[in-house]
Nucleic acid binder design. Structure first.
Length: 189
DNA sequence: CCGGTGATGCCCT
DNA sequence: GGGCATCACCGGT
């Protein structure tokens, strides 16, 4: 990421979320590279009742109020990790949940991380993304400009390929249309 | 293909 | 002590 990319991430989550479609999440693991193309995202913002930051800063969500371009990882439902790209200015709690990626490189190792799951279910869903790329809470706060997890921004998808919809799995603010996915991808949750 | 449900642990109230 | 930004598995279609 260069200075322009970081400036983009400092913008509002609802603008960053569609902009991240088509970019790459790169994970270096055991000397190998795992690359996933981001194909589904959701925006979360402190003005938003579904967001972890809605009720202010806590020990769990502190990363989300930090510097844009870092990774916010949280644990949920007793067994899954989910990861977000922190966005917005420092001090403002917002981020973009990575809900699905498409394997681009290192698919065999992703399958191994997922205990043999193959096909669409390999990486379609936020818990699956983290498991396939071996991302856990130890990476909460990680700078996405540094190995072993980095974000490589690609050109924006054309508008005609971006579908906007309501978010999944939440009980608050269900009507906000802050989920975005790539129409061309079969790896959407 | 679809909906229901059990698993399971941490954070917040 | 309740609730959760989920997943895998099961059964019925």
């Amino acid at each position: 990421m260069d200075a322009d990319d970081l400036a983009m991430l400092a913008g509002p989550a609802s603008a960053v979320a569609p902009r991240l479609l088509g970019s790459y999440l790169v994970r270096e693991l055991n000397g190998r590279r795992l690359v996933g193309k981001i194909v589904e995202t959701e925006a979360y913002d402190e003005s938003d009742a579904a967001s972890h930051t809605f009720r202010g800063q806590t020990k769990r969500n502190a990363t989300m109020l930090g510097e844009p371009g870092h990774l916010y990882v949280y644990f949920t439902y007793g067994m899954h990790y989910c990861c977000n790209v922190v966005c917005g200015p420092a001090g403002y709690g917002s981020g973009v949940l990575i809900r699905a990626v498409e394997p681009v490189e290192g698919e065999e190792l992703m399958v191994q991380n997922r205990h043999g799951v193959i096909g669409r279910n390999l990486t379609s869903g936020p818990g699956r993304v983290c498991q396939s790329l071996a991302i856990d809470k130890t990476f909460d706060g990680h700078d996405l400009n540094q190995p072993p997890i980095s974000l490589v921004i690609q050109p924006a998808l054309p508008d005609c390929d971006i579908i906007q919809a309501t978010r999944i799995g939440i009980k608050q603010a269900v009507e906000m249309p802050w989920r975005f996915y790539d129409r061309q991808s079969r790896f959407v949750s």
